[in-house]
Amino acid sequence: MRKVIVAGNWKMNKTPREAIELIETLKPLVSEREDVEVVFCPPFISLMVAVEAVKGTNIKIGAQNMYFEENGAYTGEVAPDMIAECGVEYVILGHSERRQYFGETDESINKKVKKAFEHGLKPIICVGETLEQREQGITEDLVRLQTKIALKDISKEDAKKAVFAYEPVWAIGTGKTATSVQAEEVCAAIRRVLSEIYDEETAGEIRIQYGGSVNAGNAAELFAMPNIDGGLVGGASLKADFAKIVNY
């Protein structure tokens, strides 16, 4: 039985002080759900204070990105061992905003996935299509390709630790949400390609989230779908209502 995972991607929001305030607000609201894995993903600058703030709770901390080199002349980048040493467990890789604004490619995301596993980090691997690609009828083809390249040369033992997040680009921050049926169709397609890469048992162990304007009103219906194992939540993770998603 796959454990539901609800992760909050705070994006470029919350100073360290504000991060602690939000965590202290949310802790008593989500700490009772032992059947849901809760992850907060604040900006780099708040990782260490966030790890300290959640000690003794069931809440995990994740980073929003990392680079695929160990060190060097890469101004502004953060290496995998730097975030691992902060005490984080997860790292979001391949978010559509990273692909769109910073030119990340499927190949660079694969490099990051490999480095994440090397440093004991669990990647949350984002895949998804634009509105134009959906209208062209290539959603499944695109998501299959993104999934296959992300997992190139990744063992099934490592793959089982990964989380996939299906995030239709047209639903991120727009208030639009894929219907539960649309989301389930794509998450099921991701699971099918995972079974092709590895086997059905491995595919059955990997968790797949839906992300894209997830909120307290639609979480229960989305998470009830057989191939949706939780959500990667953006704007709604920045307020107390996030607890309602966790407690769907």
Rank of each mutant, 00 (worst) to 15 (best):
N13V: 05
G217L: 08
G173C: 12
N247C: 14
N65W: 08
G87A: 09
G217W: 10
L222I: 09
I208K: 09
C86P: 03
G62F: 09
V214T: 13
K14L: 14
P28F: 07
V233E: 11
K14Q: 12
E196V: 14
G120L: 05
G231R: 11
G212A: 12
A150P: 02
I206K: 05
N71K: 15
E196K: 13
I20G: 03
R192G: 04
A189Q: 10
F68S: 15
N110W: 04
T15M: 07
G94T: 00
I149K: 10
K244C: 03
A165Q: 06
E201R: 11
V30E: 04
K114Q: 12
G235S: 10
I83N: 02
K11M: 05
E135Q: 15
T139I: 01
V113K: 00
A203S: 12
R192Y: 11
L145K: 15
A63V: 05
A220Q: 13
F164P: 03
C126S: 04
T177A: 15
E200M: 06
V127K: 02
V78R: 04
K14G: 00
R191D: 09
D153G: 01
K115N: 05
I190G: 07
C187A: 14
G120S: 04
I20E: 11
L194Y: 05
K176Q: 15
V49Y: 01
A240S: 15
P43G: 02
L47P: 03
I20N: 01
L93W: 00
P28L: 11
G94F: 00
G173Y: 12
G230H: 11
Q100A: 10
F223S: 11
P168G: 10
R192N: 14
A159M: 02
G87F: 06
L93C: 01
